[in-house]
Structures are given as structure tokens and as C-alpha cells.
């Protein structure tokens, strides 16, 4: 009984006094943030607010100058196994000689570890993920021949293969068609309903209320974080974006 309670109390992410800087210019200033399990979280803020930096610090890709992050109560090097990461689509070279299947199968590599090669179990997982994002027919297509939306689906499938507890996604809606955007949102809800947590860097303020339960407003410092209904207010948005932005309500 207590074990179950403990699990409920465990935070998906616990970030304490996290400061990341480029030389002496802080990109994130002393961030304290607690994300509960099972939340769909939008990370919102102006350009240069440190949204990508926050995600990369949680993943241990950037070294903070101060503070720490814990994943499901674990230090980063342990907790990272519970995370699936969806980088920005533009961060890789899509002319790389690989098929859709190849890229999605990379999601199985983490659990395999060094030296072991993917076998029939991994192939099955890969196919399942491709089916979920509606890309099974394109499995053998070269990745340079994909549209932006299809590339994003490939990245999403690569994350789904990992069957992670936490999903960190960097602008998955950037430059995708509206059908893809809707199906990504559907998948995110499905993951959330299965108990997973997702943090999504998001740009479109209009859709925050529809897509997310939680929102983190960021502008180098944490402006606010909490359930969308409490935190996503005109006042907070002005603090994050300056006075020009409004919800248009």
C-alpha cells in the first residue's frame, strides 16, 4: 500500500536551482520546477527563453553551472533511461543514407546497449511504432524523400519505440501540416492516459489550452508553472512575452 503511495508521490521531474549559461550569459536562471507524473506539459516562452536548453539540461546534454535535475527521483545518468527524446526536426541531416525503418529502429538501441544488434523483437517494436504514427507503408522510403510532417512522425515513432515514462519533445509541431499536428496531439493524449508524462516545447499560444494540462512559462527565469487553468493567464503571459502578446480573447 505504501509502495503504491510512494509511486504516486514521485515527481516525474524535479528541477532545483538549475542555472545554465553560455559563458557568463545565463540562458536559464535558477529554475525550480516540479512536474507531476501523468501530465501533458507545454513549455512556452519567447525565442531565446531557454526552452530547448531546459530540455537538453534534463537530458544531461548540457552541463549546468548550478543546480540539478532529477528524473523520477533518480539522478540524470540513471533516470535518462526512462526518457524518450524527440529533438528538433532541423537538428539532423535528412540526407543521411537511411530508411524510415532504420531511423525508427534507433529507438530500440538504448535498451540493447553497446554491441548487441537489433533482432526480431526490435523489428516488431519498430513496426508497431510505425503503424501507430501511420508510416508503416513508407517504412522503406529514404528519409530525404519525406515531407516535414512525415519527418516529425518518424521522430515521434522513434520515441514511441522506447516505451518511456517521460517524453521530452522539442517543437514537434514546427512546420508540420494540421493533420500531423492533430495526430501527434492524439498520440500525446494516449500516452498521458497510459500514465506517461510529456513535456513539449510549444510555440502556438492559441492551442495551449486545448493541448496541455500543464504549462511552464519560461523566459530565462521561470515565470510560472502549473495547471493551464491557473497559470495560463494574461498577466503571466505579459510577464513572459512582454506587453505585446495577448490571448486575443
Amino acid at each position: 500500500m505504501t509502495g503504491l503511495n510512494d509511486k504516486k508521490l514521485e515527481l516525474a521531474l524535479e528541477i532545483n536551482d538549475l542555472t545554465v549559461s553560455y559563458k557568463d550569459k545565463p540562458v536559464l536562471w535558477d529554475i525550480d520546477l516540479e512536474i507531476p507524473q501523468g501530465a501533458l506539459v507545454g513549455i512556452v516562452g519567447p525565442n531565446g527563453a531557454g526552452k530547448t536548453t531546459l530540455i537538453k539540461s534534463i537530458l544531461g546534454l548540457l552541463k549546468p553551472v548550478a543546480g540539478s535535475a532529477k528524473i523520477l527521483g533518480l539522478e540524470i545518468d540513471q533516470g535518462i533511461k526512462k526518457i524518450a527524446y524527440v529533438p528538433q526536426r532541423g537538428s539532423v541531416d535528412w540526407d543521411f543514407p537511411a530508411t524510415v525503418f532504420d531511423v525508427v529502429q534507433m529507438g530500440t538501441y538504448g535498451k540493447l546497449g553497446w554491441l548487441r544488434r537489433p533482432g526480431s523483437k526490435e523489428k516488431k517494436l519498430t513496426k508497431d511504432a510505425l503503424e501507430k504514427v501511420g508510416m508503416l507503408e513508407l517504412a522503406h522510403r529514404q528519409i530525404s524523400q519525406l515531407s516535414g510532417g512525415q519527418q516529425q512522425r518518424v521522430f515521434l515513432a522513434r520515441a514511441l519505440v522506447q516505451h518511456a515514462e517521460i517524453y521530452l519533445m522539442d517543437e514537434p509541431f514546427q512546420g508540420v501540416d494540421s493533420t500531423t499536428e492533430q495526430s501527434i496531439v492524439e498520440l500525446l493524449r494516449e500516452l498521458r492516459n497510459q500514465g506517461a508524462t510529456a513535456l513539449v516545447v510549444h510555440h502556438d499560444l492559441q492551442t495551449v489550452k486545448d493541448y496541455f494540462d500543464w504549462v511552464v512559462l519560461l523566459n530565462v527565469r521561470k515565470i510560472a508553472a502549473g495547471p493551464v487553468s491557473e497559470v495560463f493567464t494574461e498577466t503571466n503571459l505579459k510577464l513572459a512575452f512582454g506587453s505585446r502578446v495577448s490571448l486575443g480573447e
Partner: peptide, 17 residues
């Protein structure tokens, strides 16, 4: 597989260990 993933997507490669 290590060569493939780290060449295609170094950040992802680091994130999966």
C-alpha cells in the same frame, strides 16, 4: 548501430546512452 546513430543524430545518441 552505434556508428549509425551517433553519425545521424549525436544528441539523441548521447541521450540513449
Amino acid at each position: 548501430k552505434e556508428l549509425k546513430v551517433s553519425t545521424f543524430d549525436p544528441a539523441f545518441s548521447k541521450a540513449i546512452g
